[in-house]
Design a protein around this nucleic acid. Structure first.
Lengths: 182, 182
DNA sequence: CCGAATCCTGTCCGATCGGTCAGCTAGGGT
DNA sequence: ACCCTAGCTGACCGATCGGACAGGATTCGG
């Protein structure tokens, strides 16, 4: 056995999310993913039944994560909720990095499972900015604004109720960014 | 002759920008573009030497437009510049709609001309929000925030000097959005 | 009425796409 | 010693990819 079994699966998922981010779903071939992960295309298709299965596995955890975040926020209020929301958002975006892009998928596209609208290159660049790889401070602020806007907009589209999450995140984000509340 | 010649070219470009927006560059086939434009793939390749040529033609006008906007802003100052910047930005985004996405391309990607990072689906949804198709007012505000962030960030990456454009647009945008300056 | 130029298409090409399958290799249990 | 199973791969499949090319159809200047 070449690798510790579970490792290759993880490597494939890692390569896939990075390549999907760079070229989009339809724009990334199984061969590219396999090469990047250091295995053959056939080996990749041994671990995943088909290309869609890779995407499905990448999408799975994020929806639950957002719902959990929303539930936690519902039990807080005011200043504490705002700070908690921002902290949770930071945690969420760092933990899932590019996977957060899933939130941008149209719901019916997800259901009907055809090709995906591609927002991945954009998300990759946002992630770069957010992780501090770009030292440009104004760029980071703008990136944060965009990131928050994306998450809030998409949360609604994914069926997450708009009430608490959006209101608290808006206030909390503005404060974090050093902007006065409005 | 089936069509008035220049019309088919325009139709092809129109189909291409819409399909690139939906599926990305690599994710859109010449056949799909041709079918959408109502002609054969061979006819498409008569009007454009290859797939890259379509993209190149779509990219051409936007860079110049941004430069012109920057030059106009350089001759203004203070309040007038801020308002003019926002107006120009609105004009720019509406006139070029999805084509604005070009600004998001990495410069070296443009030069080396391989596959493109895909931001198009995201831009399409932003455009929807900005054009008022989504009646959700908070969503529109967030969309604007993201849009401004994108344009400002990408202008820098495309070689547009950061000075005037970013500073003025930031102030003007905040005012337009009803947020206090900071 | 006649070339000549323009517009358009059917057909073919090599490469690559997503996916299948038989079979190889390496450990672990008995 | 044995075989069984999990992990992995090369070879192959039909479909589709971007692109080339010869030639049919239409329009226009002479």
């Amino acid at each position: 056995m070449a690798r510790s079994a579970t490792t290759l699966r993880a490597d494939i998922l890692d390569s896939a999310v990075r390549l999907f981010a760079a070229h989009g779903f339809r724009g990334t071939s199984l061969q590219e993913i396999a090469t990047d992960a250091g295995c053959s295309k056939a080996s990749l298709l041994y671990h995943f039944t088909n290309k869609d299965a890779i995407l499905t596995e990448l999408l799975a955890p994020v929806g639950a994560q957002v719902a959990e975040l929303e539930a936690r926020l519902a039990r807080l209020d005011g200043e504490a909720a705002a700070r908690a929301a921002v902290d949770a958002l930071v945690d969420l975006s760092l933990r899932f990095r590019l996977q957060v892009k899933i939130l941008l998928l149209d719901v019916d596209t997800l259901i009907n499972r055809p090709e995906l609208p591609d927002v991945d290159g954009f998300m990759a660049r946002l992630t770069d900015a957010l992780s501090g790889r770009s030292a440009d401070q104004p760029a980071r602020v703008w990136a944060w604004m965009a990131m928050l806007g994306i998450i809030l907009t998409s949360a609604g589209e994914c069926g997450v109720p708009e009430g608490t999450l959006r209101a608290e995140l808006t206030r909390g984000a503005l404060r974090t960014l050093g902007l006065p509340a409005c």
